[in-house]
Structures are given as structure tokens and as C-alpha cells.
């Protein structure tokens, strides 16, 4: 399981991307989904996830829905209209970053 600092800057984009594909998700579900998608490579801790979710909520990117599930309450997050635009921006930003990094990392092999 890697928790490299490199992933840290992309946490918000990862959350937004997941929420854009699923109507609404709760905290634990997000951590498990990321773990499954990355085959255990990326493990988001609650210490990183919840502050990020709360910040996005405060910024109006996410909205909250509380429902009762199995003897307890569950807080779901979903994208607001502002959130949907934000997701598109963040994703293209990340895509560009990946391309740039790839160009940099691969440049040496091409030269040699």
C-alpha cells in the first residue's frame, strides 16, 4: 500500500471524479472504492478524506444528504452544479499534469 505524497495533491480530484460517476457516496464507500480501483495501491485514510470532504462542502462544491441506514445515520455527499464544472476543470488539469510528467519522465529514454 503506497501513501506517497505524490497522491496528496490529487485527492480532491479523485473524490470529485468518483462522485461524478456515482450519484451520491459516503466517506467509507469512497475509501473502499479507491482501494478497489487501485487494487490496494492507494489507501485514503479518514484523516485525509474527511477534512477534504468538509472543505469541499464548505466551498459549495458538494452538498450533504443524511439518511437512516441500518440503525444509524449516514452522511452522503453529492456534487452541486458548481461541483460538476469544478470536476471537469480539475480532471483536465490532472490530465495535463500527467502528460507533462510523462513527457519529462520519458524524455531520457528517447534521447538515449
Amino acid at each position: 500500500m503506497s501513501n506517497s505524497k505524490l497522491y496528496k495533491g490529487s485527492l480532491i480530484t479523485i473524490i470529485l471524479k468518483l462522485l461524478s460517476e456515482n450519484d451520491k457516496m459516503y466517506g467509507y464507500e469512497i475509501t473502499q472504492k479507491v482501494k478497489a480501483l487501485t487494487k490496494g495501491e492507494l489507501n485514503i485514510t479518514e484523516g485525509a478524506l474527511y477534512p477534504a470532504l468538509h472543505k469541499l462542502e464548505a466551498d459549495g462544491v458538494l452538498e450533504v444528504e443524511v439518511t437512516k441506514v441500518d440503525n444509524r445515520l449516514r452522511k452522503y455527499y453529492k456534487l452541486t452544479e458548481k461541483g460538476t464544472t469544478e470536476t471537469a476543470n480539475k480532471l483536465s488539469e490532472l490530465q495535463k499534469y500527467i502528460e507533462t510528467m510523462q513527457a519529462l519522465v520519458n524524455s531520457k529514454t528517447r534521447l538515449a
Binding site: 466517506g27 467509507y28 479518514e46 474527511y50 444509524r72 445515520l73 449516514r74 452522511k75
Partner: peptide, 17 residues
Amino acid sequence: LDVRVELLDHVASTLEA
């Protein structure tokens, strides 16, 4: 309450798994 509700659900889901 708001923090506890969310944390409770997280702990409970982890334990159930």
C-alpha cells in the same frame, strides 16, 4: 453531533467489513 454521526458510520462500516 454532525461529526460524531459521520465518524460513527465510518467506524461501524469498517468493523462490519
